[in-house]
């Protein structure tokens, strides 16, 4: 329960290491709430979220924050890059928050921008990038710490078809190469088709798609 509204109910899912899973459902179905609960951003009133044998609902805010920083990466709709920092500085943020020296963070960030086809764009502000380029910077920022798990919330929401395709190919190919687990929240079937399977959320419940048991078979 969050406030007076019951956002999720009876949700039982299992996501395996290295899997790419799409969570689909109409607006207001509870899919974003599910992402926030899985990522330890929101603490549910009841139930557990187990990550590598740790029940993260039992951790305090500081512990959950540390877990997010060290283990998780995030890609949001239209990147949510810091507008006053250029592309490369945006990518360095999670590295510097983890205690890395600026010079090394810049070196690693530049390598990631190159890898994502953004060679020469590192000095540009987010407002000077196209939607697809900004989203690839966001992917670089999410993957630069080599997270075990990436949460992507509507990563193609504001992009045209071709830019969306490039973003999804980039995200999923890199994640598969790194063995990173990805949870993609989307209402777009084509974006979901890059995942190994989909989970459908409706009215706060998992109503269709492959359940944990089905995924084992």
């Amino acid at each position: 329960m969050f406030g007076a509204t019951e956002a999720l109910r009876g949700v039982d899912i299992e996501i395996h290491a290295g899997e790419i899973v799409a969570v689909m459902g109409p607006s207001g179905s509870g899919k974003s709430t599910l992402l926030h609960v899985l990522a330890g951003v929101l603490k549910p009133d009841s139930g557990t979220v187990v990550y590598h044998e740790t029940d993260i609902t039992g951790l305090n805010e500081a512990e959950r924050s540390a877990l997010r920083l060290s283990e998780f990466g995030f890609v949001f709709q239209f990147g949510q890059l810091l507008p006053d920092l250029n592309a490369i500085d945006n990518v360095t943020i999670p590295l510097m928050l983890a205690g890395m020296k600026r010079r090394e963070a810049l070196r690693q960030s530049a390598t990631w921008l190159d890898r994502l086809g953004l060679d020469g764009h590192g000095g540009k502000l987010p407002g000077e990038l196209s939607g697809g380029q900004a989203q690839r910077v966001a992917i670089a920022r999410a993957l630069v710490t080599a997270p075990k798990l990436v949460f992507a919330d509507e990563p193609t929401g504001l992009l045209d078809s071709l830019a969306a395709e490039n973003v999804m190919v980039t995200l999923t190919e890199l994640a598969r190469a790194m063995g990173t687990t990805v949870v993609i929240i989307t209402h777009d079937p084509r974006t979901a088709s890059y995942a190994d399977r989909e989970i459908i959320v409706r009215d706060g419940r998992i109503t269709a798609g492959q359940t944990a048991e089905a995924a084992h078979r």
């Binding site: 079937p189 084509r190 979901a192 088709s193 890059y194 995942a195 989909e198 459908i200 109503t207 269709a208 798609g209």
Partner: peptide, 19 residues
């Protein structure tokens, strides 16, 4: 609803194959 879910799953499977 279940009928639509079954068809949606089949469509999503085909979409994954095409991707």
């Amino acid at each position: 609803n279940r009928l639509l879910d079954v068809q949606r799953a089949a469509h999503m499977r085909r979409l994954r194959e095409l991707t």
